[in-house]
Simulated assay, not measured.
Amino acid sequence: MKGKLLTLFALLLPSTSALAGQCEDNFTKTGNPLKGTEYSTTLTVPGLGVPSAIAQMHNIALEDGMNIIDENAESGAMLLEVSPNVAHRGLQVYFTAAPGGLTKMLLKTRRGSLANADSIKTSMCKMLYQLKPGKAPATKSVGAKPITISAIKLGDQVGQTVKDNAGLIDARFKGKTYRISGYFAGSEPSSRGMEVFYDMTPSLLPGYVQSESTKLFYTRIMCVMAKDQRGHALSLREGDKIDLTGTFAEYQSNTRTAVISDCRPSK
């Protein structure tokens, strides 16, 4: 997502908030890379209520492409996550709000991880300075802008999440819209509609067939086509290149399948 915070290491523009300076002054770093490092800061926003702080941070986090793992407006606590990528397995960020407008943000890195403290400080403060006094805004849902990805990469991301903690599946994927490219491996009719399966083990060698043991270890991607797309599904043949857009609905652990709903050919 261009122009948005995808990791807490991104360099961002300085805040123009009237509270500028407080967040930076309160920033602390403790620990070390061998045992893990904690980065934290606080910001007091006069007139900011706890429910409003949580609702605002909910929207700020989604705008910055972060995952909301857990939130509680009554206790004033949130667990956010910078989406996993090739550089890290997902960074968890704790945000709390207390009566009187006191807010706190904490990031813990894993043992052996290296991070740029200045970039983390800048990113944390950029988020906190967006908090304003007043009533709680309506919370936004996961954006509908499609995430372009290959079926194999999406399968790898889901599979890695299952290894890390399957409980994170919904927070990381559910409700997000994906534009998925890959190759057609087959389809089946169901009460939900035509189910289209991506080939998760395409081979560059003509005629080469993956062994059954290899197929046991990958996550399948299956698209449930929209009701008016039955004809499109039936027109496909094995090996056809497909590019479909739909919404992540669920992960079926018994078949290791990620189900994408309401799929249509991408425009």
Rank of each mutant, 00 (worst) to 15 (best):
A10K: 07
L12K: 11
L12N: 07
L13A: 15
S15K: 06
T16K: 13
E24K: 15
T28N: 15
G31Y: 07
N32A: 12
G36F: 10
T41A: 11
G49V: 09
V50D: 00
A55Y: 04
A55E: 01
H58N: 07
E63Y: 10
D64M: 07
E71I: 01
N72T: 12
E74W: 12
L80A: 08
S83M: 15
V86G: 04
V86Y: 06
T103A: 06
L106N: 05
R110V: 05
L114S: 10
S119I: 00
M124P: 01
Q130C: 09
G134S: 08
A138Q: 09
G143S: 14
A144N: 14
A144V: 13
K145D: 10
G155P: 06
D156Y: 13
V158G: 06
V158C: 06
G159I: 07
Q160H: 06
T161L: 12
F173A: 10
K174P: 02
T177G: 00
T177W: 01
Y178L: 09
P189K: 07
Y198E: 00
T201I: 13
E212K: 13
F217M: 14
A226S: 13
A233C: 05
S235A: 14
S235C: 13
S235Y: 09
R237C: 01
I242S: 02
D243Q: 09
S253P: 00
D262W: 11
C263E: 01
P265R: 04
